[in-house]
């Protein structure tokens, strides 16, 4: 019952900045440890491999973060990835020029996002439900379209993209940068980004302030759908097939990356760089565990435990505010 001094503002702020650094620090620390502990980690082959592995989830995590900032969730992104590998494979095999096939596939992602927006805004369904429904149905539609078979893509140039690199960095990782930079500007330096935060913080207050809340929600899900379709294209290029069961549990990895990166599932808190770091932390765990010959079953346990630890500390940080 002693008189508690009111903590000053300053130390907390530092603590905050520290947290952002800690995440990056954690990632770098993991790299250093792995580089020392294993002979194969710090090799060009492994690094490019790691970047390729992490890229897909990183892009998904950015889209997922837009949705989570509005206080929603998009469970369908993994299914969209699988579904769009089929779409792009079918279109390319039908002889469409690659760029047209890719564009149309991206538009399919946009359409799915619009459908989510429609379900939430017009039908009043919770985001969890509408995206859960699409998650199941899309895989079903994809299986119907392919009769359950994989479709081999007969275009070498399409597949070559995922293997190529520029300035020693794989194209796939360049795609992360291509997505991340505009996303960063969009989220932090445009009014639509501010509106995403305001809707997630208090939709009613945002609406009364003249923010078009339905449009903002549509926008978040369209971006998530678009980025998921983009990942579908990249994945199809990487594995050379279209298969609706691909991208299994990608949505969970994307959500985990986003949350590890400091996004609050209650909305209104999040960034672009956080989820990116989060996704590469996850890929590094997997990569490192493989190199250290850790049982793959244990990898899952470790990943789960780490999510709890990181999000717990994040919660402490926010309560401290």
């Amino acid at each position: 019952m002693s008189t508690e001094a009111i903590p000053a503002e300053k130390p907390k702020r530092n603590f905050n900045a520290l947290f952002g650094l800690t995440l990056l620090g954690l990632l770098v620390l993991m790299w250093i440890v792995l580089a020392v502990a294993t002979p194969s980690f710090a090799t060009a082959l492994n690094i490019t491999n790691l970047l390729r592995q992490g890229s897909l989830i990183a892009i998904l995590a950015v889209g997922q973060t837009f949705v989570i900032i509005t206080g929603g969730i998009d469970l369908s992104v993994g299914a969209i990835v699988g579904f769009t590998t089929v779409i792009v494979a079918l279109l390319i095999n039908a002889g469409w020029p690659i760029w047209v096939a890719v564009l149309v596939t991206l538009l399919v992602g946009v359409a799915i996002g619009l459908f989510h927006g429609f379900g939430i805004v017009k039908m009043g369904l919770p985001p969890f439900i509408i995206t859960l429904a699409t998650m199941t149905s899309l895989r079903g539609i994809g299986l119907l379209m392919t009769n359950g078979n994989s479709i081999s893509i007969n275009s070498d140039s399409f597949q070559a993209f995922s293997r190529g690199s520029l300035a020693g960095i794989p194209y796939l990782f360049w795609m992360v940068i291509l997505v991340a930079v505009p996303s960063y500007i969009f989220l932090h330096h445009t009014r639509w980004g501010r509106y995403l935060f305001s809707v997630g913080s208090n939709a009613e207050a945002a609406r009364l302030s003249g923010v078009n809340v339905p449009r903002t929600i549509y926008m978040a899900y369209v971006l998530s759908g678009l980025l998921a379709a983009f990942v579908g294209v990249l994945l199809a290029s990487r594995i050379g097939i279209g298969n609706p069961t691909q991208g299994d549990t990608y949505e969970l990895q994307a959500i985990a990356s986003s949350v590890i990166g400091g996004t609050s599932l209650f909305g209104a808190i999040g960034s672009v760089h956080g989820p990116l770091i989060g996704s590469f932390i996850l890929s590094t765990i997997n990569n490192g565990a493989n190199l250290l010959n850790v049982n793959t079953f244990w990898q899952r346990v470790i990943t789960g435990a780490l999510i709890i630890v990181i999000v717990y500390f994040d919660g402490l940080r926010r309560r401290g505010k």
Binding site: S201, E204, A205, A206, L208, A268, I269
Partner: peptide, 9 residues
């Protein structure tokens, strides 16, 4: 609190 402010912004 419910309608006027985005409290965590």
């Amino acid at each position: 609190r419910d309608q006027g402010l985005c409290l965590n912004l």
